[in-house]
Design a protein around this nucleic acid. Sequence first.
RNA 1: AGGCGCGUAGCUCAGUUGGUUAGAGCGCUGCCUUGACAUGGCAGAGGUCACCAGUUCGAAUCUGGUCGUGCCUACCA
Length: 911
Amino acid sequence: MYDKWESSNYFAPNGNGQSYCVLIPPPNITGTLHMGHAFNQTLMDTLIRYQRMQGKRTLWQMGTDHAGIATQMIVERHLAEENTTRQQLGREKFTQRVWQWREESGGTITQQIRRMGSSLDWSRNRFTMDEDYAEAVITVFERLYDEGLIYKGQRLVNWDPQLGTAISDLEVENHEESGHMWYFDYPLLDGLKTKDGANHLTVATTRPETMLGDSAVAVHPDDPRYAHLVGGFVNLPLVDRKIPIIADAYVELELGTGCVKITPAHDFNDNQVGQRHNLDQINIFNLDASINENAPSAYRDLSREQARKRIVADLDALGLLAQVKDHKLMVPRGDRSGAIIEPLLTDQWFVKIAPLAGPAIKAVENGDIEFIPKQYENVYFSWMRDIQDWCISRQQWWGHQIPAFYDEQDNVYVAADETAVRKKYKLADDVVLRQESDVLETWFSSALWPFATLGWPKQTPELEQFLPSSTLITGHDIIFFWVARMIMMTLHFTDKIPFKTIYIHGLVRDADGKKMSKTKGNGLDPLDFIDGIDLDSLLEKRKANLTQPKMATRIEKATKKEFPQGIPSYGTDAMRFTFCALATTGRDVRFDLNRIDGYRNFCNKLWNATKFVLMNTENSTITATPIRSVVDEWILSKLHRLINDANFALETYRFDMFANAIYEFAWHQYCDWYLEFAKPRLWDEDLGEEEKAGTRQTLLEVLEALLRIAHPVIPFISETLWQQVTPRLSGSHDTIMTQSYPIAEDYPLAIKAEAQVDWLKGVITGIRTIRGEANIKPSLEIEIYLQGGTPTDRAREADAHIMLKRLANAHNITWLAESDEPPPNALALVGDLKVMVPLAGLIDIGVEKIRLQKEIDRASADHQRIDKKLSNESFVAKAPAEVVAKERDKLSDLQGRMTALTQQLEKLSSL
RNA sequence: AGGCGCGUAGCUCAGUUGGUUAGAGCGCUGCCUUGACAUGGCAGAGGUCACCAGUUCGAAUCUGGUCGUGCCUACCA
């Protein structure tokens, strides 16, 4: 079915409607579909299918990003298996290998996305390393450089020593880990002594190895304990370096010893202190975080871990280790490698971000761009207003190589390629140029997504039509990574906003509310819900990527408990429906197996309801002029409301309400009641053909509309069923997905019919309750008496007689005059109408009395509550008149009810 | 430490601008193989809306505080 949709080009923009465009967060080529994607995809596809059916000219363009670091890691791992390295291969051959890998394995996720039913325009598929996309990236770089918004500089950056590249601060994850706090004594020089008479200052650190790069000890300017020492010196042990004691307000008086070692080359805060005091920046690390030649020879070439041990031991030996304490600290780790990040001085390229951030902040402030839910705007503002220059260079090979060229004097020239550089800078042919070897970080290219996918820098018709896009649907985890950067770049280069609305959905978590992760083994594969998976395969899968093998048994236990039978096959639609139903306003979405179970059943229900409708409308080409009955009018009226609710839900991005409205209508109105009403009508021999035709027509019309309403969320089932249903109405059509969305006005609201059916349901439910409580077998036909009530009750009963009989399973319904004495009975009240089931040996009088008493108690409690409310003078005086009137009505209803029930109880008691 | 959010039925969650009998799904109890569906039908039980105070005629809803919990940002050298 999906193939047919795709090959029929139904996914491409069509018609002349208003443009509607959704940007896909480009999945990366190393990825496989996880629950987060599946959730995100479901919401986007629901929205785009809905808008397409609303007649919009929709574009949901497919594309992937090249995932610089992740992809390079994978290919390097392959090379390692072949006992080679990228260095041995050389840059060009390595890049070829990456492309080769991408051809072979980079398409996994695109196939998986198809399984989700996503109606993406595949014909416009883009990849961030495509030639024309790369052109956009290079153009952007060059322009920003020429505008002075990109610069190169030696600055302290987050360095991943394992990957050998800088990463942005967003790519660093800080988590609490346990470690130690070491206290070192630095001997005072020149005979200085502290107030306590000590001849040393004590500093503390969580990273002892950095002491090799210390270039000062700082105290607070107002600290009386150390004021006399400022300007003096201490000797840096092991290194034997004379370093100054400085005063800086960065030091907190209360904290620790009040003395802080300053390592400008290896700590962001120290670096600023260093700049204020003109301190030396002593870099003690090589790029792999081993100790370099700036340190004493004893420590050279040691890894940072070895160096730490050695230094602590050596200081201890010298009697300078004052103390060691256990300490919890936040450890920065690279989000890809998991390695501890080291602040390191290196040459990097930066985007000067403030000029770009200004307009981007304004666009949200003035409402051009809107976040839903709105509170995310604060998250956005707080980050944007304190934004740091963006380090965009990566010491990698896979990615967009920075279009900067150096001559032999290291002068920098920026243009698309060497030829362009020579032309632009009027360089002689004999000037030797070499290109910058760094590449741009992947997010730099993703930031151009809204316009680069549409052909920019060329002015294409698509750019005209689909920029700005309408809605961006994404998780809050990439607001900074991607969303904010797209806003900045798009505004800067096109003077347009990238999108009008940003809908931020929750993040999918496991049943315990934990983040799903392959390395923790608590992840779930959406395809396993679609296709099902047996327990053994699931166990194997979840244990495959564990970083800590110790966890295997725990994962096994948890998995066996949660999925004792593995996972049954639920199908795409059930999963999509579940995701919609879970898309509430919260920040987390816990994926609950019970929910998908229920929604699978819902799909089954639709299937069976359709089967019923088809069976009962077979060979019945509607010849007679259909006459609609009150139940027909009622279900059409309910359908009218459903359409309004569905529209409202999707317009306000309440996918949960959308799903719930469909579920409630389909199951609890259409199936539970309307189909049951229809049965006696279709099967009653006395009912006229026109009326039966009316019911058949309504069965089909409502089902057909329901399928269209539900199509955006359950595309496959709705298409399948719709193909069978429409021929009964007006001949067949190609596909449901290009049909127009139902319009509420086509199905008239019928307030009177609704009231009448509410009454009918009330009578039936009253009788069923009696049957249920008295344990009367459903198969047993009973006698029903009616008494009291209004002429409306009588009219309604006459109208609904056959339905009432069947749904209550009564062989007779008899009206009694007011003066008639009914036989001993069980009583249900519907307004003023008494609905009575004779005890007649079926019902135990004691049971019935208990039931009555319960009813009376309930009514009396309500009565008391409302009576109290109404006897409060200020309530009557200050509350709106209609609220007071409503309470009065309730009170008198309850009064009547209590009277009738009490009389009934007395009657039964006197028997 | 700062910011944001959350705490409603056994579980997962709705509850739009204060006025409902506080809802749904799943689970639970009882009865049912009646001709769409046992992936089902009917009926039922279950909540002092975390706690305290305040505003109001009226608070799950608004305000302040307490406790618990989660996330983000910064950081204790």
